[in-house]
Amino acid sequence: MSAPPPADSPRLDLLRFLERVQLQDLQRTRDWIAAEEKHAVLEAARRPAPPPPEWLIEYGIGTGRPAARVHAGSCWDTRRR
């Protein structure tokens, strides 16, 4: 087992420098991610809502779930069970 390097070791100084640079790069990457997420939220808010569907299928209960009813898109009874 080797002894730890002395506190004033040039290799240790270089490793600490590398650590600081990598932490700065990580923070820059996190800032870019946060900016992209904010941009995506703003883009989604600007898009108009899609039009309602012309019709909906209500499925039955049980295995296979056959179609129970077909509703017009403007029907009041389009809630889920």
Rank of each mutant, 00 (worst) to 15 (best):
G60C: 01
P50Y: 06
D8S: 02
P48F: 07
W32R: 12
V21M: 03
M1L: 14
L12V: 04
V21H: 09
A40H: 05
P10K: 02
S2E: 12
D13Q: 10
R47W: 10
D31I: 10
P53H: 00
R30G: 05
P53G: 00
V21P: 07
R46H: 10
D8M: 01
L12H: 01
K38Q: 05
T29W: 08
S2C: 11
G64E: 03
L56N: 00
S74W: 09
H39V: 04
A35V: 15
H39Y: 10
V70K: 08
V70Q: 04
P50E: 07
W32E: 05
R11M: 03
G64R: 03
E37Y: 15
L23V: 15
S2W: 12
T78L: 06
E43C: 15
A40P: 00
A72V: 07
R30N: 09
T29G: 15
D77G: 06
A44C: 01
S74G: 06
A3V: 12
E36I: 11
T63I: 14
I61N: 10
R80C: 08
R80H: 09
A35M: 08
D25W: 07
A49P: 04
Y59Q: 12
H71T: 02
V21A: 07
E58M: 01
P48H: 07
G62R: 00
W55A: 04
D8A: 01
Y59D: 13
V41N: 12
A45G: 14
A67H: 00
R47N: 14
A35W: 12
T63V: 05
L42G: 14
L14P: 05
D25E: 15
M1V: 13
L42E: 10
V21D: 06
C75W: 11
W55K: 09
P66S: 13
G60H: 02
G62I: 01
Q27F: 11
L26H: 12
P6W: 05
Q27G: 06
S74I: 10
S2D: 12
L18E: 07
S2A: 11
C75R: 08
L18I: 06
E58C: 01
R69F: 14
F17A: 11
L12W: 02
A34L: 15
I33E: 12
A34R: 14
I57K: 08
P6K: 03
L14M: 11
E36Q: 08
G60V: 00
P6T: 03
L14G: 15
V70G: 09
C75K: 09
L12D: 00
I57H: 11
E19D: 11
R47G: 04
S74M: 05
A35G: 14
W32F: 15
Y59C: 07
A49C: 10
P51A: 03
V41S: 09
P10N: 03
R65L: 08
I57V: 11
Q22R: 06
W55N: 08
D77W: 06
Q24E: 13
P48L: 09
R28W: 13
A68P: 00
W76M: 13
L15P: 02
A67M: 01
S9G: 03
V21F: 07
H71W: 06
V41G: 07
L14W: 12
G64C: 04
P4Q: 02
I61R: 08
D13N: 08
F17P: 01
